[in-house]
Amino acid sequence: MTDANFPSDPLIGLLLRLLYQHYSQDIDTALRDAGFGDIRPAHANVFPFVPPEGITVSGLAELARMRKQSMAEAVEQLERMGYVERRPNPQDRRSRLVFLTERGEAVRPVTHTTAARVEKRWADLTSPDELEELRARLLRLLTELRTGS
């Protein structure tokens, strides 16, 4: 990197965080422009993990790798804002499942389109092959970490 203020040998975690900040800024701008300006960064941990059949808050927290209490708070906020709803779990009367509402479902095309545009820009800045290689290596690393291999 040519920036004199940037570490000469940055840790991978720093690079991932800084890239994610660029990525999330573009997503936040697109959401705001589409009328979803009330969505906060913590809410981004919910939308990608809610399947059509619903999921428990504990399941969401596990998939997003965050504390159950933090996920419960994000779900409560999104429920008040009309993005998700909780319904009784037919398999377990003690729990409830989280579902996206119609408004919540409308968020996904905005984020997916914007994410594709960001990735296209990154591929243009590097190369499509390099970006796909990065994706494959990150996915492999994540899979190994999750399976404990």
Rank of each mutant, 00 (worst) to 15 (best):
Y23V: 12
A42N: 14
T113G: 15
G35T: 03
Q69L: 13
A115R: 05
H112E: 15
R40E: 14
R32S: 11
G13F: 05
P10C: 10
V110C: 00
S149K: 12
L100T: 10
R140W: 03
L15Q: 06
A64L: 02
T147W: 01
A30Y: 00
T101F: 04
A72C: 06
S24W: 13
M66W: 11
S95V: 11
Y83C: 08
N45H: 15
S58E: 11
Q21P: 00
P52D: 15
L131D: 01
L141Y: 06
E76V: 01
S58K: 11
Q25T: 14
E102V: 09
L138E: 09
L125P: 06
R86K: 14
R121L: 15
A34V: 00
L78G: 05
V118E: 08
E119N: 05
P48D: 11
L131G: 01
N5F: 10
T56K: 05
P41G: 13
E130K: 12
R80C: 02
D129V: 08
S8T: 12
V107M: 05
R117E: 07
E53H: 12
R108D: 04
G54P: 02
H43N: 15
T147F: 01
I55F: 07
L78C: 08
S58L: 13
V50P: 12
G59C: 07
H43M: 10
E130A: 14
L131R: 11
L11W: 05
R135Q: 10
V57G: 03
L141W: 04
P7R: 09
E79P: 01
P41Q: 10
A34S: 12
S8V: 13
R117T: 05
R117G: 02
A106D: 10
E79A: 15
M66A: 07
R108C: 02
V98Q: 04
L139M: 05
S70K: 13
V50T: 09
E130M: 12
